[in-house]
Amino acid sequence: MLTWIAGIVFLIVKLGFVLIFLLVLAAYLVWVERKFLARLQIRYGPNRAGKFGLLQPIADVIKMITKEDTVPADCDRVIFLLAPAVVVFTAFLMFAVIPFGADVTLWGRQIPLIISDLNIGLLYVFGLSSLGVYGVALGGWASNSKYSLLGGIRGAAQMISYELSLGLSLVPIVMLSRSFSLVDIVQAQESYPFILVQPVAFVIFMISAMAESKRIPFDLPEAENELGAGYHTEYSGIRFGLFFLGEYVHMQVLGALVAVLFLGGWRGPLLPGPLWLLVKIILVSLIMIWIRGTLPRLRYDQLMALGWKVLIPLALINIMVTGAAILF
């Protein structure tokens, strides 16, 4: 009985730690993005709230919470109010299978630095990433706005297109590690990270994951010059903040997946495992921010052509080449 209670307590502690970690990192990723983009564009960025603008994320949270939460007339009120929560919760739940490090011994007990090691962890992540688009599509549809509806439809079409190349890009990783468990995939990279033998899969995964997270140059569901703000045009206050939070948590999920699948996960010299994972997450996030500040937005036909005509055939060829290499 005591062992069962201790297991529940450890699980709750781990859940609380991961939740706080994600919220704080998401808040300061916004600060990092604003400062980094400002430097790329020869500007200062936020520099008023606290030294170097470090208190700006706190000021933004206070503004979001205190701002009026408006609901459009004739919208589907229940779906409109719940849609942002779908985006945030699916992004948070993906971290349940991300391994933060090897097991540690505490009070004579082995404590795994992971919430749940599922033997189908990769499929679990894909399932949740597919569910996340429901928040975008339903939020756009429930807003009773043509701009929001177009943004929601674009988000759904973009997810369908790039989910295929995203999944196909990881088939060689599963072939090499012989497992869908993210812990097993990290352990299979004990000798070398998979990015060294699967650079094509890495490039396809990065491009597809950025398209799924709707970041520039793939932010067609928002496209402010065409659709106002796309699927969240009618949102304000804390619900707009939830869409915003979901985007930055999704950035962290992408960084963690790249680290686990291609960069050896928590492995690295000198630093503890969780710190190495954090460094890799931040590195991938900085690359995404750099791409945002460098590349222009694609046209919608270019977006679809890239997914269907380039990435999917390339991923299929990579699967065949990897299978032949493993066989011979």
Rank of each mutant, 00 (worst) to 15 (best):
4 W>T: 10
8 I>L: 15
10 F>D: 12
11 L>P: 01
14 K>W: 04
15 L>P: 01
18 V>D: 02
19 L>M: 14
20 I>V: 14
21 F>N: 05
23 L>R: 10
25 L>F: 13
27 A>W: 00
29 L>K: 05
30 V>M: 14
33 E>R: 11
34 R>H: 11
35 K>I: 08
39 R>W: 12
40 L>D: 03
49 A>L: 09
50 G>Q: 05
61 V>E: 08
61 V>H: 11
65 I>A: 00
67 K>M: 12
67 K>N: 12
74 D>C: 08
76 D>I: 09
78 V>I: 13
79 I>N: 13
80 F>T: 02
84 P>E: 06
88 V>F: 01
89 F>Q: 10
90 T>N: 06
91 A>Q: 00
91 A>V: 01
94 M>L: 08
95 F>W: 03
95 F>M: 15
96 A>Y: 01
97 V>D: 02
99 P>M: 08
107 W>G: 11
109 R>P: 07
114 I>K: 01
117 D>Y: 03
119 N>F: 04
127 G>T: 07
132 G>W: 02
132 G>E: 02
138 L>R: 10
143 S>T: 08
143 S>D: 09
144 N>C: 08
144 N>V: 06
145 S>Q: 09
146 K>Y: 07
147 Y>N: 10
149 L>G: 03
152 G>L: 05
153 I>F: 14
157 A>L: 15
161 S>C: 15
162 Y>K: 12
167 G>Q: 03
169 S>P: 05
169 S>C: 02
180 F>I: 06
187 Q>N: 15
191 S>W: 07
201 A>M: 00
205 F>N: 12
206 M>C: 15
208 S>D: 04
212 E>V: 08
212 E>Y: 03
222 E>T: 13
228 G>V: 14
234 E>N: 14
238 I>K: 00
242 L>P: 11
246 G>Q: 03
254 L>S: 06
263 L>T: 12
264 G>W: 08
267 R>Y: 09
272 P>C: 11
273 G>V: 02
275 L>P: 04
278 L>V: 15
278 L>T: 15
280 K>Y: 11
280 K>M: 12
280 K>W: 08
281 I>C: 15
282 I>M: 11
283 L>D: 01
285 S>E: 09
287 I>Q: 11
289 I>F: 05
298 L>F: 06
299 R>S: 13
302 Q>I: 00
305 A>L: 14
306 L>P: 03
310 V>T: 13
314 L>E: 06
315 A>F: 03
317 I>Y: 03
319 I>F: 00
321 V>Q: 00
